[in-house]
Design a binder for these strands. Structure first.
Length: 692
DNA sequence: CTAGGGTTAG
């Protein structure tokens, strides 16, 4: 009895930090539970004659309610004293899908000297509900009480580990394993490999793996998936080959991992080999394996092969369908994606996000929002991935109201507000022109990654806050976050927008010298833009001549724009010709060239270009503006009168133009439209129509 | 009376 008390005190002390309390009045609690139990549950005959513990009762137990009733009955009849009864109760609570670990714990704490079996079962339970720190506490308590773990202890304990807990106490537990001499038990070793691989210590995992003398398939599987987890797909592949050389027959689990690696590496050849393996009936094709095959074909861009396999699948689940939808979505074939999406027997949030992302891929942002609305009416809860996609759509549409609504939605529905979501929010606010709110989100962030800083730098730059953008860049470097190519686009853009030519030159040079980033064609384009706008046309042209790669149309376009701004028709003509060389049917180039000629009063040349356009059948894609009103995004396209309120809108526009003119405004008519006379220009500039 | 592995999305 003295020992019993000592144990309870110790246990209580150890667990007080984990919000557990030891229940000394357990018995009275159990009896009160029995008194409120529903009466329709009949007293089982086994309980009336209690020569044997009611094993079958426990085996047929389906819920915690039933378990509590059995527990209460055993107390009434005095059976609780039988060790089998408490064991069964704890096993149920720890292993059943609906098992209650708090209940298990209350019972466990009443047992004076729990067996290793019970300690193991408790740890298994904590792993099941993903409370690994409770499991670890159990383990340390067990140690303190000098209870020796057995070979089941570590697999159960480590199974529920997260990255954090593995980093925190993985090595200590590994030492324990060695201390108790389990370094030759393959189950324990597999668990260790798994534990090291989930926390990214892949070399430690490999070290343990190499020490295992008698590897089983599961050993190979856990190591291969470990390499997948840290994105070392070529290592996964190597290990798979090695395994085959040793004559170890893979299982479907192995193949799923290998296929996953093939998908990431876009290794169609290996993927096909795996498929052959399955076709030759060497391995049982599970649904998961079949899904992995479809995914491999999709990832390798083999939509036909993917479809052929998919159509022949006897059973398909939501993952099979989503994989196909995603395949079409990623390749820009949204309409096909949509066909399959519509045919799906059920759709989860991942399916919905896949079709929404498909719309984003091809800039069909309004359609993305439409899908989101449908998703909501079909009661599928979005997750943070969905939110990122929707915020991206809002950003491109300038839909600030909806964006704000999404933010509220995230808070209200407790959707994970992670770095991805916050980055998307920042981008949305900036693209909608609200720098203040973007910065408010930014300031509140504790963890900022490369994308956060880049979003802020680009956002500030494009909103006209060049100096602030550069300030952010300094802060980014100070925080030891490594900038990338995109970050420098933002930096150079900031210099351009604020006319900081010298700073721009300096930053451009520092890309290589200080940050080890090779400028790409876009960076050269930024430099041309920066120098050109500032009037350094010759220097801009020199940049183009000296750049190590072939200039693209954007680079020439930057020069062309600069020429127009500084009225250099000669250089402009050359730039435009270079541009047309690259993009025969880009209407915008012709328009730019026309604008130059118009600016320089070279009407003859302008007519020639117009003629060229007519001959080549070139049309400029109409410009499009957007406005959000009461959460609905309206598109304005010149010359389109399909909006139901078209009349009203036009009369309002006329009124506004009158007011503007009265106030002394004279429109800039240098942006000529090609198939209309100069007189019409002013009208057309305002004449958007609205389409909702 | 207890054990180990996997697929879909930024």
């Amino acid at each position: 009895m003295t020992f019993f008390l000592a144990l309870k005190v110790k246990t209580h002390w150890l667990y007080s930090s984990l919000s557990f309390s030891v229940h000394h009045s357990l018995k009275s609690k159990m009896i009160s539970m029995a008194s409120v139990a529903p009466t329709h549950f009949p007293t089982h005959p086994h309980l009336q004659s209690f020569e044997n513990p009611p094993v079958t009762l426990f085996e047929n137990c389906k819920s915690m309610d039933q378990l509590k009733q059995i527990h209460a009955q055993t107390m009434k009849t005095g059976l609780t004293a039988h060790p089998m009864v408490l064991n069964r109760i704890i096993v149920f609570c720890c292993t059943d899908e609906f098992g209650d670990m708090k209940y298990a714990r209350r019972v466990f704490d009443t047992i004076p000297e729990p067996s290793v079996f019970l300690w193991n079962t408790m740890m298994k339970g904590y792993s099941r509900i993903r409370y690994p720190d409770y499991g670890v506490s159990m383990y340390f308590t067990m140690q303190r009480l000098s209870v020796k773990p057995d070979c089941y202890t570590f697999p159960f304990l480590l199974k529920g580990f997260t990255r954090e807990i593995a980093l925190e106490c993985g090595k200590e537990l590994h030492a324990s394993v060695l201390k108790y001499g389990f370094d030759s038990n393959v189950f324990v070793q597999n668990a260790l490999v798994h534990m090291y691989s989930i926390c990214g210590l892949i070399d430690m995992a490999r070290g343990v793996f190499d020490m295992i003398c008698e590897k089983e398939v599961a050993t190979w599987n856990v190591m291969i998936s470990g390499y997948n987890r840290v994105k070392k797909y070529d290592e996964s592949w190597k290990l798979f080959n090695c395994m085959q050389k040793k004559g170890v027959l893979p299982t479907s689990v192995t193949l799923v991992s290998v296929l996953s690696a093939c998908s990431k590496l876009k290794d169609l050849d290996t993927g096909k080999q795996v498929h052959k393996c399955v076709k030759e009936c060497l391995i049982e094709p599970t649904l998961v394996l079949e899904n992995a095959l479809v995914d491999m074909y999709v990832a390798c861009g083999e939509m036909n092969a993917a479809l052929k396999f998919f159509e022949n699948m006897k059973t398909k689940d939501v993952i099979s369908w989503t994989t196909i939808v995603k395949g079409f979505a990623n390749s820009g074939q949204v309409d096909l994606a949509r066909n399959y999406f519509d045919e799906m027997p059920e759709r989860d949030y991942i399916s919905w996000t896949a079709i929404i992302d498909g719309c984003l891929q091809v800039n069909r942002f309004k359609e993305a929002l439409e899908f989101f609305r449908q998703m909501q009416t079909s009661y599928v809860k979005p997750d943070e991935y969905t939110m990122v996609s929707i915020l991206t759509a809002c950003a491109h549409l300038g839909a600030l109201e909806l964006g704000e609504w999404i933010k509220t939605y995230i808070d209200k529905n407790k959707i994970k507000n992670d770095t991805f979501v916050r980055n998307a929010l920042i981008d949305m606010y900036f693209k909608c022109g609200n720098a203040e709110k973007a910065l408010r989100v930014f300031d509140a962030m504790l963890h900022r990654d490369k994308f956060t800083w880049t979003a802020v730098i680009v956002g500030l730059a494009t909103n006209g806050h060049g100096r602030e953008a550069l300030g952010m860049f300094s802060r980014m470097v100070e925080s030891l976050v490594t900038p990338d190519q995109i970050t420098f686009i933002g930096v150079l853009c900031a210099c351009t927008h604020s006319g900081m030519v010298d700073e721009g030159r300096k930053f451009f040079a520092s890309m290589i010298t200080q940050h080890g980033i090779e400028p790409n064609v876009t960076h050269y384009g930024c430099m041309v833009d920066l120098l050109g706008r500032a009037g350094h046309l010759i220097e801009a042209f020199e940049v183009i001549q000296n750049m190590p790669m072939k200039p693209n149309s954007v680079v020439w376009g930057a020069l062309l724009g600069a020429c127009r701004m500084h009225k250099d028709a000669e250089l402009a003509e050359m730039a435009a010709k270079e541009m047309l060389e690259l993009e025969q049917d880009n209407g915008a180039v012709y328009v730019l060239l026309c604008n130059i000629y118009a600016t320089c009063n070279k009407w003859e040349n302008l007519r020639e270009v117009r003629q060229m356009m007519m001959n080549r059948g070139i049309k400029k894609t109409p410009g499009c503006s957007l406005i959000e009103l009461n959460g609905i995004v309206h598109e304005f396209i010149s010359g389109d009168r399909s909006h139901p309120q078209s009349e009203k809108i036009y009369s309002k526009l006329d009124e506004m133009i009158k007011d503007l003119k009265f106030a002394g405004y004279s429109p800039d008519t240098s942006e000529v439209f090609l198939d209309i006379g100069e007189e019409d220009v002013k009208k057309v500039q305002y004449a958007g129509t609205v389409r909702s």
